[in-house]
Design a protein around this nucleic acid. Structure first.
Lengths: 138, 138
DNA sequence: TGTAATGTCTCTAGTGACTAGAGATTCAAG
DNA sequence: CTTGAATCTCTAGTCACTAGAGACATTACA
């Protein structure tokens, strides 16, 4: 049995965030000492590691709640869990696509002032002001 | 001179968002009719277009405020504006990098349940529970 | 000119996923 | 037994909006 601070150290999840997860129902309410402090065991540690890993992968709290729900009721869990992961993957791919377009435009905008040829009016500002200067949609 | 709704239509920025930008100081306070409604002209339209374009490119409100500040004081603006754009570009590239790692892992996790070989325990959940199963850091 | 529909006003509160801080209590070490 | 660190609950703040209530203004049409 260890304290919330210890759990925080082991999982690298900040203390207030752990309490927040408990409030959101991702973690079951922890046992308490006589002095009302939370105490955790291996099960608590594992669940929090699961949550942290999923958060690192960009799953929303809601999606994680669904995954935990599935863990607790393992019938059919594999298909449903895969659905959630696939949706997450699609989301990530969409974000990558969009960011790549932005990268292209930002690279173009940034580069134009890069060399010695400092022009009178700022190309960065002009580019932002006038969408027509973009080479692509976004 | 046109109304906030008209401005919204032309810039595709929602009406409450326009008011929010005004409150945040990105837009100067609009002129008002005798009945207290906001009226805009070409200058207002251009500034809002600028803001929208920058937001689309992921610039924060704060960064946009800096850019606008530079617009209003054009001495040295080009260098400073370029700095902001370059920082934004670095940010976008970092995000892309991270998302690509996530994509790789999510793809691996998602695929494992894909075919006919449905295993007893769910690989998605196991992967999330056990970071050791990851092939890379993230 | 009257009236109805639509637009606009301000204000407050909610979103997601935390983070920060106040003030009180509890724990662990010396 | 005392000190200092950790923990407790609670409220409020972050970012960039979005939603809704209730009141007032404008516009279109008869």
């Amino acid at each position: 049995m260890f304290s919330i601070g210890e759990l925080s150290k082991r999982t690298k999840v900040k203390v207030p965030t752990i309490r927040y997860y408990e409030e959101m129902g991702l973690l079951v309410e922890a046992e308490r000492t006589s002095g009302n402090q939370r105490r955790y065991d291996k099960a608590g540690l594992e669940r929090l590691s699961f949550i942290r890993h999923a958060r690192d992968l960009g799953f929303s709290i809601e999606a994680i709640a669904s995954l935990i729900e599935l863990q607790d009721h393992p019938d059919r869990s594999c298909e449903a869990a895969t659905d959630i992961a696939v949706a997450q993957l699609a989301d990530v791919r969409a974000k990558i696509k969009r960011l790549k377009l932005l990268e292209k435009e930002l690279a173009r905008i940034s580069k134009s002032c890069d060399g010695q040829g400092v022009s009178e009016d700022c190309y960065v500002l002009a580019s932002l002001a006038d969408h027509e200067l973009c080479h692509r949609e976004h």
